[in-house]
Simulated scan of single mutants.
Amino acid sequence: MNRLESAIPLLLQQLKTFPQQDLVIVFPDDGATKRFKDMFSVYSFVTCAKVRNGDHCNVVVKDGDPNGKHVVIVDDLVQTGGTLIECAKACLGKGATKVSGFVTHAVFPKNSWSKFAHSSNPSVKFETFWITDSIPHSRDIAKNEPFKLLSLSALIADRLLGYDLVPSV
């Protein structure tokens, strides 16, 4: 039997440190909404979408309301980060007060993570960008603000050994 396992419990542990009413979970597209929405049942959520206008593509808020909220954009992986940045801009344009992000797999080829680094003066400032150690270079990326590394080791041990090292949320 195949099972989809996720690193979302690691993020949920982090989100417990924020007032729930101040947060909204944002999915950058319908695919992320379908994959992850049920894991965030206690939070409001927003779905963004790419809208084509001729040769130009814009990311817009499709469903939900980020106004007055700290938005946390959730996806399974990031490459260049363009969609996440455009999703953040769309939410800020609709009144979001802060932006954070979470991805399980921080691929970031050719140092594309640097567009999120506070020292690079990004066009959108992410408060926190949680990544996991699923990719070896994640440890180096996490040495830079706003990145925070979450280890998969306890989740993997839970699944392999049947332990309860990651508290349920």
Results as ranks from 00 to 15, higher is better:
Phe108Trp: 12
Val74Asn: 04
His105Leu: 11
Ile73Leu: 02
Thr104Val: 12
Gln13Phe: 09
Val46Ala: 15
Ala96Arg: 05
His118Lys: 12
Lys115Val: 05
Ala32His: 08
Ser134Cys: 06
Ser119Gly: 04
Tyr43Gly: 02
Cys87Val: 09
Val60Pro: 03
Ala96Trp: 07
Lys62Trp: 12
Pro19Trp: 15
Thr104Lys: 06
Met39Gly: 09
Val60Gly: 05
Cys91Gly: 00
Lys125Phe: 14
Leu15Glu: 07
Lys94Asp: 01
Val61Cys: 05
Leu10Trp: 10
Phe18Met: 10
Gly81Pro: 00
Pro109Leu: 09
Val60Cys: 07
His105Cys: 11
Ile8Phe: 11
Asp76Pro: 04
Asp65Val: 10
Ala117Arg: 08
Thr80Gly: 06
Ile135Trp: 02
Pro19His: 15
Thr83Val: 10
Ile131Trp: 10
Thr17Arg: 15
Phe36Gly: 04
Val107Cys: 03
Asp76Glu: 03
Thr132Met: 07
Ile8Asn: 00
Ala88Asn: 05
Ser134Gly: 06
Ser119Trp: 06
Ser44Met: 03
Thr132Ile: 05
His70Cys: 07
Ser123His: 13
Lys37Leu: 13
Thr80Ser: 05
Pro19Arg: 14
Gln20Glu: 12
Gly95Trp: 13
Ala32Pro: 00
Ser41Arg: 13
Phe129Ala: 03
Thr104Pro: 02
Val51Ala: 08
Leu77Ser: 13
Ser123Met: 11
Leu12Tyr: 15
Ile131Glu: 02
Ser6Phe: 10
Ser41Lys: 14
Phe36Ile: 13
Gly68Met: 05
Lys125Asn: 10
Lys115Trp: 02
Val99Asn: 04
Val24Ile: 14
Thr104Ser: 12
Cys87Met: 12
Ile73Lys: 01
Pro122Asn: 08
His105Asp: 04
Lys34His: 11
Pro9Glu: 06
Glu86Asp: 07
Val46His: 12
Phe108Ser: 06
Val99Glu: 00
Leu23Trp: 11
Cys91His: 01
Ser41Ile: 14
Ser134Lys: 10
Lys115Cys: 03
His56Glu: 14
